[in-house]
Design a protein around this nucleic acid. Structure first.
Lengths: 221, 221
DNA sequence: ATAATATTCAATTATTCTCTTGAATATTGA
DNA sequence: TCAATATTCAAGAGAATAATTGAATATTAT
């Protein structure tokens, strides 16, 4: 009978492996980046500000939990999410945090200081206005992420390219920007520049993953 | 600029709080029990085999992460899930584990030795056969869990009551049993007794939570 | 008030985790 | 083959965690 209990613990232990993988802020940041696009260890280290060695160790932890997988690419090793279910899990975890922990809302206000500054537009509304060519949709994420999948009709517009876009985009249309989702500042930063130039702007809070999970299509480069 | 990075880490740290709460097998077992029904500290300690003190500490950890909440009931304190989203999170985590970690399947075979012994019936099929009064549906969980919510038409049938049910239930109908879900042995144990008595049996792998998440209704005592 | 009891708190130990540093490994390109 | 480079491994210090034990707290019933 004790063995039955042991087996039960073994089962819960396996589930806890996934939990452990999700229990460090560093690893979650890595997971979040990988949700947007696959990357090498060095790229991830640079983007997160962690040391290479530390990044590698966290990635191996994620790999051990089968949340990510690797592929060799010359002298580089590229990490990617092991399955779409993983980004769903990450999304569900964030939803629970947002719903249950009120500090999340405050932390988000601190991090995204322009969070309440811009008009919001929802996915459904955006689709309508895209069809009537009423808006210009911008993807504020780094180019690699845009290339790995973006909303249909979106232009790649990382912050470095905005100066140029200010002159090339029609000034009679509303500029709508999105990035990695509600916990990402990139779109806010892009919109701030357009707003400063007197353009009509709006933010889509959803990212590509949320868009996809809602059943809409995604374009690839 | 460093402060911006700090704020980002703070945000991820909050998400990691949830991950940490999900990172211990003991806590997951508690969470799983609470998914079925609210309970007092002592009840949870008895069911998990953990010491009262240890149980209390784990519960407080879950409470801190806002996954559970408490209510005083005389000298007892009753713990319950803080929101339905929590059981969805737990369900999603298990799904990822099952999908990604092959050891889960093996551990499950070891824990549920009769897993492949009984015919399976899915939720859709069950609904049809219930309507035509073709089957008897049994809830193999402890009474408290049955009372806290069960499938419409199910009879409460924890293992202690099976001997009596063997004589009182019609022997021309298939006995279908379910319990907490695919990671629970209770239904197997009940079905084994009915099968031994020569009855036609089948198992529904889904538990009340899965049934509910599929959009079906749930009865309360 | 006081005794009884459910739960939590505090202190302790053994274990696990995180991050750093520096060396080891494996692939590419000369 | 050899140097260059991306990544991993190994070891160690400091922090966090889990389980145990016994005391403290808070509510109920006498």
């Amino acid at each position: 009978m004790s063995t039955k209990h042991q087996q039960k613990i073994q089962l819960y232990d396996l589930f806890a492996q996934i939990g452990k993988a999700l229990s460090s802020p560093g690893r979650l940041e890595l997971l979040d980046l990988l949700t947007q696009a696959s990357r090498t260890v060095e790229e991830l280290a640079v983007e997160t500000g962690m040391s290479i060695s530390n990044t590698s160790q966290h990635l191996q932890r994620l790999k051990q939990a089968r949340l990510v997988e690797t592929e060799r690419e010359g002298t580089f090793i590229r990490y990617r999410l092991a399955a779409p279910a993983v980004s769903e899990l990450w999304h569900t975890l964030r939803q629970v945090a947002e719903q249950q922990i009120s500090d999340v809302d405050q932390a988000l206000d601190a991090y995204r200081e322009r969070r309440h500054e811009f008009e919001r537009i929802n996915a459904q509304n955006l689709r309508l206005r895209l069809q009537s060519r009423d808006v210009v949709l911008l993807d504020a994420r780094p180019t690699v992420e845009y290339e790995s999948g973006h909303l249909p009709g979106a232009l790649s517009a990382p912050i470095e390219t905005v100066e140029q876009l200010l002159t090339s985009l029609p000034d009679d249309k509303t500029i709508v920007a999105y990035c990695r989702g509600p916990y990402c500042v990139l779109a806010d930063e892009v919109l701030a520049l357009f707003a400063q130039a007197g353009r009509q702007v709006a933010r889509l809070e959803e990212g590509v993953i949320e868009w996809q999970m809602a059943g809409y299509e995604v374009s690839r480069a």
